[in-house]
Design a protein around this nucleic acid. Structure first.
Lengths: 199, 199
DNA sequence: TCAATATATGAACATTGTTCACTAAATTTG
DNA sequence: CAAATTTAGTGAACAATGTTCATATATTGA
């Protein structure tokens, strides 16, 4: 009984890993039942023994990617002193993560509600993506009394929407046209939303 | 020579109208070469005599929809006195337009850059969508000296990203879950970005 | 070892976008 | 007006998609 579960999980992991590789490397466009199965070393039909459908597989990748995103952010801000500047940098790095992995962005934010079945928890992860990746920062701001909890939540909601939109415009239609300009824009806009030394 | 052009344009319009109907009624998902052609009263193959591909047809709808959006906004704010409050309302109504026509939102903001060919002008329209729909309002603000031109452009860039993200989250995964809550949220966030009596 | 169960798979189907050869209609030409 | 030519509309066909299902193979248990 136990062995079976272990083996099943292993099989699922093979497919998930293959799917993750494809997403990071080629993007959502290149993910198909057959391409994932190929990479995992099985027939496309085998996938249906372990996943309800292709979306089931896709959304299981979300967990892993959110963790990668958290680490990505943490690594790039841990040297900065705690405080607002670090919070702003965290948001900036969060956006940069998806620029580095556009396929992950597509997975997180381009999927429609009909694509999820019972996978409400996955939805939760995506909706709290920025919050999760920057949780230490805003907890610190609250602790310091710089902002109230509800203020932070409001800002986070705003920032999550903004980050999603900014990425849509840059990744889907290269607006702004260069990465430098994009970086300048997001820095400016983060300061607009989180003005220094004011809250 | 002239007749031929008129007739060709008429044919294109039949397909465009059919496509627009499907987008507004059923959404992007229901738009296919065959469904559009069916509604237009022709074979699917006929479409290829007038459009390079299905995206060519799709993006020709953008023009019309942007105009509809402009009218939608204008109609709903023209009674308000000029000024910041009206600007905020304009942004709010802009968002509401896409809630009313989610298929138009998909068309505008879910398409990837690879889907456009030479259609850079269509891209331009989409990227300036909010700016176009609220141009009178921000011109007034500039004229009054309430904000500088560059300030307005920065705000508009921010607001366009935010609006896109907010709509992604609401339309694609019902976050917030009810329309009332959604409305409350966008009103609050618009005031965060455009605080009353401060600029 | 042999029966029972579990698993991996290819064939098949529907639906997508797209191409192309062909037919019928319209237009031009003699 | 008739014949030739160009134009316009169409279905057959193809590749790629997700999904289902019967079946062959492998594993397990007695």
């Amino acid at each position: 009984m136990k062995n079976k579960e272990i083996q099943e999980q292993r099989m699922r992991d093979y497919f998930i890993q293959a799917c993750k590789d494809l997403l990071k490397g080629e993007g959502l466009r290149s993910v198909s039942v057959r391409s994932v199965a190929d990479r995992a070393g099985y027939s496309f039909a085998t996938m249906y023994n372990y996943f309800r459908d292709i979306n089931d597989l896709l959304f299981l990748c979300v967990n892993d990617f959110q963790n990668e995103c958290n680490e990505f952010v943490a690594e790039r801000i841990h040297k900065l002193p705690m405080g607002e500047a670090r919070f702003r940098k965290a948001v900036q790095v969060y956006v940069e993560f998806f620029v580095e992995y556009p396929g992950v962005f597509e997975l997180f934010f381009m999927a429609r509600k009909g694509d999820f079945g019972n996978r409400e928890n996955i939805l939760e992860i995506i909706n709290n993506s920025l919050k999760t990746a920057t949780i230490d920062e805003w907890n610190y701001l609250i602790k310091q009394g710089d902002m109230s909890r509800s203020e932070v939540n409001n800002k986070l909601s705003l920032l999550q929407s903004w980050a999603t939109g900014v990425l849509i415009h840059y990744l889907n239609r290269l607006q702004p046209e260069s990465y430098e300009e994009f970086l300048k824009t997001i820095k400016r806009e983060i300061r607009l939303i989180l003005p220094p030394g004011q809250d």
